[in-house]
């Protein structure tokens, strides 16, 4: 190839790569650097403190609580929304009547802004006048302070998250189901295999790459999506529903401790890097069909 074509290639790449460098690569590196320094005071850069910020994090009870919350949040919401998504996709892909309407119902939460729907959910959860407590009282049960009780705040957030995400993941399963090789099902029909057997032996293994794709996306979202916290709980009561990215936001923009925010961001980046490593390094090699 002529050197001219190389030059053209780099020129075509330049705008996108410059923007990616400016807003992804360079900030990621400077986050790491800033985590070794004190927060700047009155415009002066803080002094180098080595691993002090990380030691502070290890001794910060709130950090551990936030990490633990985020862990449970992911462990509960990710598998639940994936299973629901698969069930929804199978139902919507069936021959049932009105499936277009049902599909629309499942998918609608995906296109609505998290902030707007959180406002609606806030009304469901509110004590006294809230919709859920209203229904409970009519049925003779006692209402709960869903968002104010430390034991219930995080689970209440989880329910809303599952509602928001399941329909989104359903779309990927639906796409995969519709592109499955029909000849395998003909073979299963000849063998008189039951519906459950066919699912176990054919559908589920063939959907494995889709499940993996959804799994990774869902895990990233579990660390990235904190919009609803701003409306529903603000991480409270007493950090009972706080998540890592929201805690980073609080440190940077409410407490103005940018060094600690950078340290926490570094930890979040490490978590995301581990997820990437699991995806590309481990799982991709095991789950390959093409």
């Amino acid at each position: 190839m002529s050197p001219n074509r190389h030059l053209h290639a780099w020129l075509l790449l330049l705008p996108a790569m410059a923007m990616l460098a400016a807003f992804t690569h360079i900030p990621a590196i400077s986050t790491l650097l800033h985590s070794f320094f004190e927060s700047p005071i009155a415009g002066k850069t803080g002094s180098f403190v080595g691993l002090d910020n990380f030691e502070f994090a290890l001794e910060d009870d709130i950090f551990w609580q936030v990490l633990w919350n985020n862990f449970w949040y992911a462990v509960v919401t990710v598998p639940t929304s994936i299973v629901l998504a698969l069930v929804m996709a199978i139902w919507v892909n069936s021959q049932m009547s009105g499936r277009a309407i049902v599909r629309l119902a499942y998918f609608t939460p995906t296109v609505l802004p998290m902030i707007a729907v959180a406002n609606i959910w806030l009304f469901f959860y509110t004590p006294e006048i809230g919709l859920i407590n209203n229904l409970l009282e009519k049925l003779g049960f006692e209402g709960q302070n869903w968002l104010g009780d430390p034991d219930l705040a995080l689970p209440s957030l989880m329910v809303m998250t599952i509602w928001k995400e399941a329909g989104f993941f359903m779309i990927f399963y639906l796409a995969a189901l519709q592109s499955l090789d029909q000849s395998l099902y003909e073979a299963a029909a000849v063998e008189n295999s039951s519906r459950w057997q066919t699912f176990r032996r054919i559908t589920w293994p063939l959907l494995m790459p889709t499940t993996l794709f959804i799994l990774i996306n869902a895990l990233i979202n579990a660390f990235k999506l904190v919009d609803h916290l701003f409306i529903l709980t603000k991480g409270g009561p007493n950090n009972a529903s706080n998540l890592l990215l929201y805690y980073i936001y609080e440190n940077a923009f409410s407490f103005f401790d940018t060094a600690y925010a950078a340290t926490l961001t570094t930890i979040l980046l490490i978590i995301l890097a581990l997820l990437a490593w699991v995806q590309f390094g481990v799982l991709d090699k095991k789950v390959h069909y093409r």
Partner: peptide, 8 residues
């Protein structure tokens, strides 16, 4: 994603 790097 850019969400993660809001501080920088």
């Amino acid at each position: 994603m850019p969400e993660v790097l809001i501080v920088e």
